[in-house]
């Protein structure tokens, strides 16, 4: 097994090739994506830590089982985000836990608001943060996920197309509609 330094220099695709024959290499891939995917799941599902860990484990197992399906013409990150997104949506449907306590980090809110909507400064202030959280939470999942990908995960359109498996036009419409809805939600709350 190569040491830590060697594996950090390897690309995702190289690690996938190695992991197909040795699960230890898959551990490096998991380490690389563990934190990113934890945030992503939390941002689109609002699940608590324990649930997120369960989803993440299911995602990693699924990714490992399907390593031979991965086509390197696609970015590995897009592929793993797609599997994560699908698994999270399955769990949301199963558990019907849309109304869980919002578990977005504070800096997420600021980023979300500043990047996605042209709102008044007061919406990003700390005392009004709770209401802002509520506005984001009430966004339907289909809008929330595109906005999370664009403004929090900072994915470009090509990556979003590969993750969501939706055409560019549809994604652009969802983002635009999501912004409008968020603004409406905020206006109603203040």
């Amino acid at each position: 097994m190569e040491d830590q330094k060697d594996y950090t220099e390897k690309s995702d695709t190289e690690l996938v090739k190695m992991a197909r024959s040795n699960p230890e290499y898959f551990g490096f891939l998991m380490e690389r994506y563990n934190e990113k995917l934890t945030f992503f799941i939390r941002r689109i599902s609002f699940f608590q830590k324990e649930d997120i860990e369960d989803i993440l484990q299911e995602v990693f197992i699924k990714v490992y089982k399907n390593l031979n399906e991965y086509d390197d013409s696609l970015k590995f990150s897009s592929w793993i985000y797609r599997i994560t997104r699908n698994q999270t949506i399955d769990n949301i449907r199963k558990k019907s836990r849309h109304n869980q306590n919002l578990s977005l980090e504070e800096h997420d809110f600021e980023k979300f608001l500043k990047s996605s909507v042209n709102l008044e400064k007061k919406y990003a202030e700390k005392e009004t943060m709770e209401k802002t959280r509520e506005a984001i939470m009430t966004l339907p999942l289909k809008y929330r996920e595109v906005m999370v990908l664009k403004f929090l995960e900072e994915k470009n359109y090509d990556e979003m197309i590969d993750i969501l498996k939706k055409p560019k036009g549809t994604i652009a419409t969802l983002i635009s509609r999501g912004k409008t809805l968020l603004q409406e939600n905020l206006t109603n709350l203040y």
């Binding site: 197909r20 699960p23 230890e24 898959f26 551990g27 998991m30 380490e31 563990n34 830590k49 860990e53 993440l56 484990q57 990693f60 197992i61 490992y64 089982k65 399907n66 390593l67 031979n68 399906e69």
Partner: peptide
């Protein structure tokens, strides 16, 4: 708090999970 990476690797080894054959996907 659980270590997802460690537990996943253990599960893969314990349950002898293998990547599905590329022929299946083909």
């Amino acid at each position: 708090m659980k270590d997802v990476i460690k537990e996943t690797l253990e599960k893969i080894k314990k349950e002898e999970i293998k990547p599905i054959s590329r022929w299946f996907f083909l």
